[in-house]
Simulated assay, not measured.
Amino acid sequence: MTHIAILMEQAVGETRVAAIPETVKKFVALGANIMVEKDAGKSASISDAEYEAVGAKIVSRADAVKNADIILAIQGPDPKSISGAKTGAALLASLNPFVERGNIDAYAASGLDAMAMEFMPRITRAQSMDILSSQSNLAGYKAVLEAASHYGRAFPMMMTAAGTVSAAKAFVMGVGVAGLQAIATARRLGAQVSATDVRSATKEQILSLGAKPIFVENVAGIEGEGSGGYATEMSEEYQKAQAELVSSHIAKQDIVITTALIPGRAAPRLISDAQIATMRAGSVIVDLAAEAGGNVEGAEAGKVVVKHGVKIVGAKNMASLLAADASALFSRNLYNFLSSFWDKESNKPIFPQDDELVIGVRVTHGGKIVHDRLLGEG
């Protein structure tokens, strides 16, 4: 019988859990034995009794790890905390390999088969397994709610006997999964929404959501489409033109949401201090890339900074603020991945070394680091 361990998250502020009763029940149906660390789901409003009701066993971390063939977590666990894991056990989580390289080295030394789920290829087959998309969707939604809570005015236009309240103007920079959800949410709250991206293909997506696209035209490098649907860094000519366009537009905005990330690189700087100074006092900027260095000059992850009368919200682990939903989506991503490789005869997942999904997420195997991007080859 395959033993699957569900760990309680140890990172400060992390409220999610890597499996919910729904997915535990599905794993049990596959024939797996599920061991959940005591209180693993507490911060996501899931009791130990709920796990037990669907067939899981509640155990200590040490007991969960030592018997596990598969270890599931949200964030990569401290290697010392899973030192009792057996050689060859699979670890599935968001491992943040470029920042937490020391952890990756330790997983390799321990013989773990570590899989960085954020490296999941963005292809049709893997859509239901993509943790970045599922968590970014919630982050984009929550970013707008955070902006609304810090903004001292209403979002929608309101016509009252005492006069009219103008609708807030919201500008979304970066139209990936998070950006699209931010546009949709701001629109639902009644704001006048505009958006921009370095990828020209996103214009139609922006328009489809009822927002106004703000794009640099007739400048080399407008396509901006990298591998896997990610944006790439732009030419100096494009960056200059983009900065000029944003400067003129941002001065008229009440709310700005920035979402731009380049995997494995520091977040690109989109808004300078000088541009912030042109905004009206009381405006709000939410920087969803604050943990990766920030799109906004002066943004600090996990803090609200006020500059020139503008509140800059440095987002940190935004999905954790929606722990129940974020846990449900993350856990389904993990289940969908594992179940797609589940072999009924051997009652365990078998990961073919030549499978593009396995190649995409596997970072350590056989005591070595095996991912091209960590070996400087990709």
Rank of each mutant, 00 (worst) to 15 (best):
S166F: 10
A241E: 13
Q353W: 00
A11I: 10
A89F: 02
T202C: 04
A178W: 09
D273T: 09
F119G: 01
S149W: 00
Q135M: 15
E146C: 00
I71P: 03
M234N: 09
N103Y: 15
L145H: 11
E146W: 00
I183C: 01
A195T: 10
M117G: 04
G190S: 12
E300G: 00
S194Q: 14
A143H: 04
I82C: 01
E345T: 14
R187T: 14
A18G: 06
A161T: 15
A266I: 04
G314Q: 07
D372P: 15
A168K: 07
V28K: 15
A167S: 15
M35V: 00
A53I: 03
A301D: 09
G102E: 15
K240Y: 04
L357Q: 10
V59Y: 12
D355F: 03
P79D: 07
V17F: 08
S340T: 06
N336L: 05
E291C: 02
T87G: 08
V310F: 04
A191F: 14
D372A: 15
S166I: 04
M157I: 11
F351M: 05
G224D: 08
P21G: 02
M157K: 13
V165H: 13
I206L: 09
R188E: 12
A301K: 10
T23E: 12
G152P: 07
F341D: 10
A191H: 12
Q75C: 00
S134F: 02
T124W: 05
D325S: 14
S110D: 13
E204S: 14
V216Y: 02
L288I: 08
M318S: 07
G102Y: 03
M158S: 02
G140V: 05
I104D: 01
G282K: 09
I34H: 07
K368D: 12
Y141E: 05
I6H: 06
L329P: 01
K316Q: 14
A154E: 08
A267R: 08
S327V: 02
G111S: 09
L112R: 08
E22C: 00
T258L: 03
S208Q: 13
M158P: 01
E52R: 12
A168M: 10
D197F: 02
A182S: 15
S320W: 05
M117R: 10
M234E: 09
N218D: 15
E118N: 09
P121W: 08
M279S: 03
I6Q: 04
I222R: 12
S43W: 01
A266C: 00
I131D: 00
S134P: 02
G179M: 13
E100T: 06
I20S: 01
M120I: 14
R125V: 00
D113E: 13
M129N: 08
Y141D: 00
G152I: 05
A220H: 02
G140L: 06
N317H: 07
E297I: 00
E118T: 09
H249R: 13
I312P: 01
K307G: 00
M158W: 11
E356R: 02
E204L: 11
S227I: 09
T23I: 12
E14Q: 10
G210T: 13
F171D: 01
I262C: 03
M35G: 03
V28Q: 11
Q135K: 12
D197W: 05
K42W: 06
V358W: 08
V358R: 04
G360E: 08
E217R: 13
R187W: 07
G152V: 07
M8G: 14
A162Y: 13
I82G: 01
K203A: 07
E118P: 11
T124S: 15
K368W: 00
T2C: 11
V28P: 02
A162V: 12
V193E: 05
